[in-house]
C-alpha cells in the first residue's frame, strides 16, 4: 500500500540553528541526483527561537510533502532539548542519528556548524552522491563560509567510520 521507494528525513531543532538550511541542502542534493523531491518547512511565528522542523522526501514519486507518522527513514535532531519530539515518526527500520549530535557538539568550534556536521553524517547513509552534496552546500551557503562548511561536512562523514 505505502510507497517504499521514498526516503524521508525529518530535520528538527530550534529556530536560528540552521535546521532549514540543512534541509535545503539535502533537498537540493537529492534533486541534483535526479530524484523527485519534496521539502516542507515552517515560517513565521515559529522562526523566533521556537521549535522548527523540516521534512525532506525524495524518490521516484513523492506524494505527501510531510512525512506520515512512522514513515521517516532518518531523524536529524539539532538540539538536545528537542530530542524525542518525532520519536513516533521513525520507521521500524529507520535510523535515529541523535547520537551524532553530541559527538558533533564536542568537536565543532561553533554551534552554527552542527547542522552541516549532521549533514555529513547523513550523507553516509543516503544514496545521494558526494558531488551532489558538495554542489548543494556551495549553492546554499554564502560563499565566504563555504570552505568551513565543507570542512565540517567531511568531519561529519568521518564521524561514522
Amino acid at each position: 500500500m505505502m510507497k517504499n521507494n521514498v526516503t524521508s528525513i525529518i530535520f528538527y531543532g530550534i529556530g536560528g540553528q540552521g535546521v532549514l538550511t540543512a534541509a535545503e541542502i539535502c533537498a537540493l542534493a537529492a534533486m541534483y541526483d535526479g530524484f523527485a523531491v519534496k521539502k516542507s518547512e515552517v515560517h513565521g511565528m515559529a522562526q523566533r527561537g521556537g521549535s522548527v522542523e523540516s521534512h525532506v522526501r525524495f524518490g521516484d514519486i513523492v506524494y505527501s510533502p510531510i512525512t506520515p507518522y512512522a514513515q521517516a527513514d532518518y531523524l536529524i535532531c539539532c538540539h538536545n532539548a528537542e530530542y524525542g519530539r518525532f520519536k513516533g515518526y521513525l520507521k521500524k527500520t529507520g535510523t535515529d542519528l541523535f547520537e551524532f549530535l553530541n559527538k558533533g557538539l564536542l568537536i565543532v568550534p561553533k554551534k552554527i556548524f552542527i547542522n552541516i556536521y549532521l549533514i555529513g553524517v547523513l550523507s553516509v547513509y543516503t544514496e545521494i552522491s558526494e558531488q551532489s552534496w558538495i554542489r548543494a552546500i556551495k549553492q546554499t551557503i554564502k560563499s565566504q563560509f563555504v570552505e568551513d562548511n565543507i570542512k565540517w561536512f567531511y568531519e561529519g562523514r568521518k564521524g561514522i567510520v
Binding site: 523566533r48 527561537g49 521556537g50 521549535s51 510531510i66 506520515p68 507518522y69 512512522a70 532539548a81 519530539r85
Partner: peptide
Amino acid sequence: KSEFIPKIIQGQKKKEKKRTGKKPL
C-alpha cells in the same frame, strides 16, 4: 495529515494532541 486519512475513513473522531516543542520568544 496523511496518517489521518485511514481514521477519517473509519469515521473516527480526531484525538487532539497538545502542541509540543519550544514556544517562540
